[in-house]
Design a protein around this nucleic acid. Structure first.
Lengths: 249, 249
DNA sequence: CCCAATTTGTTCGTATGTATG
DNA sequence: GCATACATACGAACAAATTGG
């Protein structure tokens, strides 16, 4: 009966999204926005069915998806409980996208930047210590960034590509698997419209220095320079965000 | 009708495992063992239903689970395709367990050890540079390992605990999220019955040296010593595995 | 110890929508 | 444009397990 209120879930101008993903994202939002926290019980299946106006099948499949991502745990008779954030798939593309969309905490960003610094220095070191590693794609990225500074081309794409190349080129599938994290970070925080030209002019030579150390096969230098690069990026970004927060409050 | 060939998928003496997890693991095995590779189409729903003797619902929910883990992608009308291993959730507890159970490649292990070295040195560095970090749990782990060497206590648990403490104690949720990887690695390769006392006697002082560097708040030393520790562990393990492989062939 | 209520687990039949050929 | 094959979605029913009286 309660489904009378929302007669047109399908009539939204959504291109090809399935009911499944709608419901998954809706429930995920409950958790990410904190309406349900670790230890809470999810409403039971029939209640969700009534609240969202979808069939039980959809709800069950949505729950399966979220269990697979470590967000829920379901026990017979007991209901479905929300797991702590420490159990959630931390590097899952979708989950990261949801977090950035529905709000990440300052702590989350801090730790993300610190972790990123660690893995990217690691990747730079790996690349530099790979015999015969071809660094030309990295240098080409730097050229593309330089062109973008003159208004010819896409800085954002070149910058992101540089960092992804590092992760994927290190010859380590675990490092390579962290690219969705970077992509989400870039999408959320370095979107083209917030790029500051001042920062770009400063960071470009840092990028090139890293690429050159890798081309020279010098792991220690690559590591050191990468640390400098991501440290500056961190400072720039967190400072910019603090300014935004300051404006809002 | 066609299910007459396998009348007893359910009659196995499995205690409380759900049909869902059975089917998920069965399909996962198809992928991990390589019967289906990237780009292949999964048999359609009805065929899986007939082959496994379960309902469509079960199959659909199993597919949802594996889509959530990045192993499958389903497209309307087109069928369900197997994704490349680079898309699979690399740090997912279940998926790691399946891989170790159904066979990991030598490359996989090599990269895992290299990645592990990177993140654990990172964690040691983070811990050592945390002001007021309490290193006594780490030192207690070393004591427990020393006792285990005298036959009093569980070396395996103490060793694993040492490394997990490092990851969880670094104050970084991304590092902490890598503990399932370590746990699976330890379970698969350092199980109590294959521990070599010689290696244990050598590695114990290495552990203590790391803990002491962290207690002293010396990130550079912590990093250096950790690198030594995991390097030796890597060599010991890969050598032992090579011996096993050599015996078998 | 058993009984009953609650909640998820599982199956089946059917209908719809959407690409493909 | 039509038919086909397949995933998508719904609803009703029964099974099984766990909790609490």
């Amino acid at each position: 009966m309660s489904s009378g209120k929302l007669p047109d879930t399908t009539s939204f101008p959504r291109p090809a999204r399935s009911l499944h993903s709608e419901v998954v994202e809706e429930i995920a939002r409950w958790l990410i926005e904190g309406h349900l926290v670790a230890g809470d019980l999810l409403p039971n299946e029939v209640e969700i069915v009534e609240r969202l106006g979808v069939s039980r099948t959809i709800v069950r499949e949505a729950v399966r998806t979220m269990v697979a991502k470590g967000m829920l745990q379901v026990r017979r008779r007991n209901g479905t409980v929300v797991l702590g954030e420490d159990q959630w798939s931390m590097f899952d593309r979708e989950l990261l996208a949801w977090r950035f969309r529905y709000g990440v905490s300052e702590d989350f960003l801090e730790e993300l930047f610190r972790f990123r610094a660690g893995v990217e220095t690691m990747a730079a070191e790996f690349c530099a210590s790979t015999p015969g590693y071809d660094a030309t794609p990295l240098l080409e990225c730097c050229d593309a960034m330089a062109l973008a500074l003159q208004g010819k081309g896409d800085w954002f794409a070149a910058d992101l590509n540089f960092h992804c190349l590092l992760l994927t080129g290190a010859g380590n599938r675990f490092l390579a698997h962290l690219t969705p994290m970077l992509e989400n970070l870039f999408d959320a925080l370095f979107s083209p419209d917030v790029l500051v030209e001042d920062n770009m002019r400063r960071t470009l030579p840092r990028h090139r220095a890293v690429a050159e150390a890798i081309a020279a096969g010098d792991p220690a230098a690559a590591r050191e320079r990468m640390l400098l690069l991501v440290g500056e990026a961190r400072d720039d970004t967190l400072q910019r965000i603090d300014l935004l927060r300051g404006d809002r409050s």
